[in-house]
């Protein structure tokens, strides 16, 4: 049987590591390559590098970061943030990323998912979605709405419906990121994760809210996620990846333990 995956997300701004709290006030916390290597040695199963660089003229810095990471860690990793075209995706693949994440650009141009999927394969095309809890209604039956621009712009699209459509368009995996839970360290949005996981046939990565190992256990069992994303809880040294995995192992979650 496949193991559940623990994935660490590194937000990268101008080539440096940053962690956003509620998507505002980014605070630099170090070198992404060094962090990636540390997590790799600690038994990380997969890595996400998320480019939050604002200006497009600094985008090539990210290619350098991807190349450096690819030469030092030998587990799959994906890159997201600001991918608007197949060319962006292909360039990052060539630099060594196993997968690419599309997010806002795919909301505005859903066919981007299909074009990426044809160019680099469904298994390398990840649809990442930022989701806000709202009052359920006719337009948003699940009570979860797709947002872009770091949560500032509501799109009037139901998150569960968008997940189903993303799969149909060619995404091979989904990242479901709760804006409400992000940065709180109070646990994942279990209900949202489970609704999405029960609606699609592709793997679901839960994101936003991880503060302690129990949170991963909840989302990987009750939330039915295939993988759980962590950020702050490992970036600031409160937990190591190895400790999280050891905990999950004691809770009988199938996890890769020898690395």
């Amino acid at each position: 049987m496949l193991s559940k995956r623990v994935i660490a997300c590194l937000d990268v701004k101008d080539g440096r590591l940053a962690k956003s709290i509620k998507f505002v006030n980014t605070k630099e916390i170090g070198d992404p390559v060094e962090k990636a290597r540390q997590y790799y040695q600690d038994g990380l199963d997969e890595l996400v590098l998320y480019d939050i660089t604002a200006s497009s003229d600094k985008r090539d810095i990210m290619i350098e970061v991807v190349e450096k990471v690819a030469s030092q860690i030998f587990i799959p990793f994906s890159v997201g943030g600001g991918i608007r075209s197949v060319q962006d995706a292909t360039k990052l693949r060539m630099a060594g990323a196993e997968k690419i994440n599309v997010n806002s650009a795919a909301v505005k141009d859903p066919e981007l998912i299909t074009r990426c999927s044809h160019a680099i394969g469904a298994q390398s095309t990840v649809l990442s979605m930022d989701v806000l809890r709202v009052r359920a209604g006719r337009a948003i039956p699940s009570g979860y709405e797709i947002v872009i621009n770091g949560g500032r712009t509501r799109m009037g699209i139901d998150a569960v419906q968008w997940a189903v459509r993303g799969e149909a368009l060619g995404a091979g995996e989904l990242v479901v990121n709760s804006i409400d839970a992000d940065g709180t360290l109070e646990g994942y949005e279990i209900k949202l994760t489970r609704m999405v996981a029960d609606s699609v046939g592709i793997p679901v990565i839960a994101s936003g809210g991880a503060g302690k190992p129990e949170h991963l256990y909840e989302v990987l069992s009750e939330g039915r996620a295939d993988a759980a994303l962590v950020a702050s809880m490992v970036h600031y040294g409160e937990y190591t990846v190895g400790e999280i995995k050891a905990y999950l192992n004691t809770r009988d979650v199938k996890i890769r333990m020898r690395y």
Partner: peptide, 13 residues
């Protein structure tokens, strides 16, 4: 088994 996803992607024994 419909709960098993294709492609088989991830870590396995």
């Amino acid at each position: 088994n419909k709960t098993l996803k294709i492609p088989h992607m991830g870590w396995n024994e």
